[in-house]
Amino acid sequence: MRSPESEKRSIFWAYVVRRKEKALADIDLALLAQQNAEILEELRALRREVAELKEQSGRTLDFERRNDPRRPNSLTQR
């Protein structure tokens, strides 16, 4: 025969499992898939933007270095 504590645990876990199954049944997989696709597309766009900004900043730095009046024009002028 089960102890009262054992019976309470059994009832509690049955309740938890039923609740979890109901919560999982309420999930709209199509909506999650759509949201996931939107997030991935936004992430791709952000990565493209970061790559463009890195390229742009590299060109700006090169331009500033080339036009720095403190920098010698050629190695022979040192």
Score class of each variant (00 low, 15 high):
M1I: 13
R2G: 02
R2S: 12
R2W: 07
R2H: 05
S3C: 12
S3F: 10
S3L: 15
P4R: 07
P4A: 10
E5N: 11
E5D: 13
E5T: 09
E5F: 06
S6K: 14
S6A: 15
E7Y: 10
E7W: 11
E7H: 09
K8T: 12
K8E: 15
R9H: 09
R9A: 09
I11N: 12
I11K: 14
I11M: 12
F12K: 11
F12P: 01
F12E: 14
W13Y: 15
W13G: 04
Y15P: 00
Y15G: 03
V16T: 13
V17G: 03
R18Q: 15
R18G: 08
R19Y: 09
R19H: 10
R19I: 02
K20Q: 15
K20S: 14
K20H: 14
A25G: 06
A25Q: 12
D26C: 08
D26I: 00
I27C: 01
D28E: 07
D28Q: 03
D28N: 05
L29C: 05
L29Y: 05
A30T: 10
A30S: 11
A30D: 15
A30W: 04
A30M: 11
L31A: 14
L32N: 08
L32Y: 03
A33I: 04
A33H: 08
A33T: 05
Q34D: 09
Q35D: 06
Q35L: 13
Q35S: 05
A37V: 02
L40N: 06
L40I: 07
L40T: 07
L40V: 10
E41Q: 13
E41T: 11
E42W: 01
E42M: 09
L43E: 12
L43V: 05
L43F: 02
A45T: 07
A45P: 00
A45L: 11
A45I: 05
A45H: 02
L46W: 00
R47E: 06
R48V: 00
R48W: 01
V50F: 03
A51D: 12
E52K: 01
E52C: 00
L53N: 06
K54E: 12
K54R: 11
K54V: 03
K54C: 00
K54N: 05
K54D: 03
Q56A: 08
Q56K: 06
R59Q: 11
R59I: 01
T60M: 07
L61S: 03
L61N: 04
L61Y: 04
L61E: 08
D62Y: 01
F63N: 08
R65K: 12
R65V: 09
R65D: 11
R66C: 05
R66A: 14
R66F: 04
N67E: 13
N67P: 02
D68M: 06
P69E: 05
R70A: 14
R71D: 04
P72S: 07
P72I: 07
N73Y: 04
N73K: 13
N73Q: 13
S74M: 04
S74T: 14
S74I: 01
T76E: 15
Q77N: 08
R78W: 10
R78P: 01
R78A: 11
